[in-house]
Simulated assay, not measured.
Amino acid sequence: MLKYRAEDYASLCALTYLDIPEYRKGMLFSTYVEQCFLKGCKENEFYQRLHEYVMKQNFYEFMDLEIVNYVNENNHSGLVFYQLEDKNDCYLIYRGSELYDAVNHENGWEDWLDNLEIWLGITNQQLRAMKYFNELNTQKRLHLIGHSKGGNIALFLGVACSDEKMSQIDEIVTFNAPGINDDMMMQYKKRIQDIHFKNKILCIENENDPISSMFSHVKEPVLVSSIYKGASVEEAYHSHQIWAYEKKDGYFVSAAKKSILPRLADLVSNHFVNLLDEENKKKFVHKFMEYCQNDCSLEEMYHVVLYNIGIHQNLLSEDEDFRSVEIQTLLSLFQKEMKEKVISIPESVKASFDEVKSKVEGWVNQVGKKQ
């Protein structure tokens, strides 16, 4: 049973993307909200949409909460979270990944480098969050809440914390959060399979969000309809954001299943990358880390994707047991995005991609024959 509505927690997650302009320990949440409403927003599409969303929300339920701690490591680890408290409860709300800020240099690629590390093990942000969590000296009930990478951190804390801390956790609520890697699923298998632990978790995902389809689910998510169709990469990006959940009379509208692009993300992340051995997985991840550190354009990122699929395509086998998904539709949609975003693709890379395309079409034909 949630202390507040999931829709209200989503509003809190949105607000945590806005820095506290004049933070002082013990300030009331109402003061923070007033600062945010008066300050306006940055000249950036993300923050403009975020600010529009925040301005429409009702934060009445939280106004008397005290901001006991505010951690902003944007220029260090990328970890940002807010600690709000009332008489009996402590709310830890974790911010998700932020856009690279090349103008004001308030945040760099730390978030995205850390995101890539999820494939390889426990990340720096997760460790930093655990450090603060272990140092938390309170007997109050704990509520861990987060959007995107913030939700991933909330899940990690619940999965990896001590039994003592676990007994204090009342609920873990995540929005469009990626799961955790397979090694962690095995390492903390006992905790993850504990029914009492699962009952504390609520994972909410947008039907068109690809990010939350990556890595392993700790608990099956509740799917919510999107205000965007999700028929393109741009719409999938917007569907990932906290403002993209469809509501009716103030409540989320449920959805039946994930759409095409999220299934593509699942295919690449949970099948293609997980087929690689440790050495090749590190090479694959480090290639994308190079992208983050060299300020490449979106078009060049597509080249990186194609190149890496090309050099690793020999590791794919026709005998691999892939989940039954609409592979041909996914491939066609991905190719459509390629044509829209990429002006020219090197012939060597295109040849590698064509080989992968041919192999995937072979899988589709085999699946069709078996059916």
Results as ranks from 00 to 15, higher is better:
residue 368 G to L: 13
residue 305 V to A: 09
residue 244 A to M: 10
residue 240 H to Y: 05
residue 32 Y to F: 15
residue 252 F to V: 08
residue 30 S to W: 02
residue 264 L to S: 03
residue 281 K to C: 03
residue 220 E to I: 06
residue 51 H to V: 01
residue 292 C to Q: 15
residue 20 I to A: 08
residue 137 N to K: 15
residue 210 P to F: 04
residue 310 G to M: 10
residue 136 L to M: 15
residue 182 D to K: 14
residue 16 T to K: 06
residue 92 L to V: 02
residue 211 I to P: 02
residue 48 Q to H: 11
residue 100 Y to C: 01
residue 134 N to V: 01
residue 358 S to H: 10
residue 154 A to N: 05
residue 131 K to V: 02
residue 14 A to Y: 10
residue 366 Q to F: 03
residue 176 N to W: 05
residue 333 L to C: 12
residue 200 K to H: 09
residue 250 G to P: 08
residue 320 E to L: 11
residue 121 G to C: 05
residue 278 E to P: 04
residue 23 Y to M: 10
residue 80 V to Y: 04
residue 272 F to Q: 03
residue 20 I to N: 10
residue 288 F to Y: 15
residue 160 A to V: 02
residue 326 E to A: 15
residue 149 K to Y: 07
residue 110 E to A: 14
residue 277 D to Q: 08
residue 237 Y to F: 15
residue 122 I to M: 03
residue 225 S to G: 14
residue 289 M to D: 13
residue 34 E to F: 05
residue 92 L to S: 06
residue 343 I to Q: 12
residue 209 D to Y: 07
residue 352 S to A: 15
residue 87 K to D: 09
residue 6 A to P: 05
residue 359 K to W: 08
residue 38 L to F: 06
residue 261 L to V: 08
residue 15 L to M: 14
residue 100 Y to W: 02
residue 88 N to T: 13
residue 209 D to W: 09
residue 75 N to V: 00
residue 123 T to L: 09
residue 34 E to P: 00
residue 294 N to C: 09
residue 279 E to Y: 10
residue 206 N to P: 04
residue 360 V to I: 12
residue 58 N to P: 01
residue 196 H to S: 13
residue 80 V to W: 05
residue 55 M to N: 04
residue 143 H to L: 12
residue 241 Q to C: 15
residue 141 R to L: 11
residue 107 N to I: 14
residue 169 I to E: 07
residue 165 K to Q: 12
residue 159 V to E: 00
residue 307 Y to Q: 15
residue 144 L to S: 05
residue 316 L to E: 08
residue 89 D to T: 11
residue 247 K to V: 08
residue 267 L to N: 06
residue 182 D to L: 04
residue 36 C to G: 02
residue 191 R to E: 00
residue 222 V to C: 05
residue 344 S to K: 13
residue 158 G to Q: 06
residue 128 R to Y: 07
residue 191 R to P: 00
residue 226 S to T: 12
residue 216 S to N: 14
residue 221 P to Q: 11
residue 89 D to Y: 11
residue 270 N to I: 04
residue 327 I to N: 03
residue 152 N to C: 10
residue 328 Q to E: 14
residue 205 E to R: 14
residue 346 P to S: 06
residue 128 R to H: 09
residue 70 Y to C: 06
residue 130 M to R: 05
residue 59 F to K: 01
residue 98 E to W: 02
residue 170 D to Y: 07
residue 317 S to I: 01
residue 327 I to A: 09
residue 85 E to G: 03
residue 249 D to L: 13
residue 173 V to D: 01
residue 258 K to S: 06
residue 242 I to R: 09
residue 56 K to M: 13
residue 292 C to M: 13
